[in-house]
């Protein structure tokens, strides 16, 4: 690997994903280059169907690219076997989904500890860690609740706790606020902001400007291509008054 001080945690080069053949060929991801550094929050925005979810699946090894390469912490993952990918997902990458994807028959804490159990943690360690995470995410009193008894925002918090339970290198979030009302969205925003402060590397795919605005960098995606990179830090230079016309 290169000798740079800060190598990217996640690196994609000329990444492509195609579906179908001939006339029906769809280039969902069409040559994407992306570097994500440790501790960074990166948002990928774009209209629905632009290929951003597919890109996220490729980055986490949930789907296989048609071409190009993905490196996680310097290691090629696009050519790993399904089994090796699964093992990688246990510890290195985790997902947060739009529709939460919690197991309906498991309580909050059982949902959270599941990834740790899959990774081979002892039941006791897994349970303790899950309880801690739920505590930290403000769900201490609800660890025995079934998902159906939780609000949308709380469910997404449980899903985030699950994603964090194996201390992954990267958390990949797919429209994490897509199914939430504005209060719950704010809740999740705050959560992601805390994760960011804590130094968690985050990739968020969204079409919600609010959640994209929490990122350090934002990419626009259109027709399978990243077209625009924005560094979002330093917008008003601290002069909030300008936002309401108090300063010019």
């Amino acid at each position: 690997m290169s000798e740079t001080a800060d190598p990217p945690v996640l690196h994609a080069r000329a990444l492509r994903k195609e579906y179908g053949k001939g006339e029906g060929l769809v280039r969902a991801v069409d040559g994407v280059d992306l570097d994500i550094r440790a501790g960074e929050t990166v948002a990928i925005m774009g209209p629905s169907g632009c290929g951003k979810s597919t890109l996220l699946h490729l980055l986490g090894g949930l789907d296989r690219p048609s071409g190009g390469e993905v490196l996680l912490n310097g290691r090629r993952i696009d050519n790993l076997s399904e089994k090796a990918l699964a093992r990688m997902r246990r510890t290195d990458v985790s997902y947060v989904f739009q529709s939460f994807h919690l197991m309906e028959e498991l309580t909050a804490v059982e949902n959270v500890e599941l990834s740790a159990l899959l990774a081979g943690c002892s039941p006791r360690t897994a349970r303790r860690r899950a309880e801690e995470l739920l505590d930290q995410l403000g769900l201490a009193g609800r660890s025995k609740f079934l998902p159906s008894a939780l609000s949308g925002g709380q469910r997404q918090r449980v899903a985030v706790a699950r994603a964090l339970s194996n201390e992954p290198l990267v958390v990949l979030a797919d429209e994490p606020t897509g199914n939430l009302d504005s209060a719950a969205t704010l809740d999740v925003l705050q959560l992601f902001d805390e994760l960011h402060e804590y130094g968690q590397t985050l990739v968020i795919v969204t079409h919600d400007a609010r959640i994209a605005a929490t990122a350090d960098r934002m990419f626009s995606m259109r027709d399978g291509v990243l077209i625009d990179e924005t560094r979002l830090t330093g917008g008003t230079n601290g002069k909030l008054g300008a936002l309401v016309g108090l300063e010019d």
Partner: peptide, 15 residues
């Protein structure tokens, strides 16, 4: 659905 989810969480196809 739960199988897909479990695999997304890190269960191998073999498991």
């Amino acid at each position: 659905h739960s199988s897909a989810l479990t695999r997304a969480l890190g269960a191998t196809p073999g498991e």
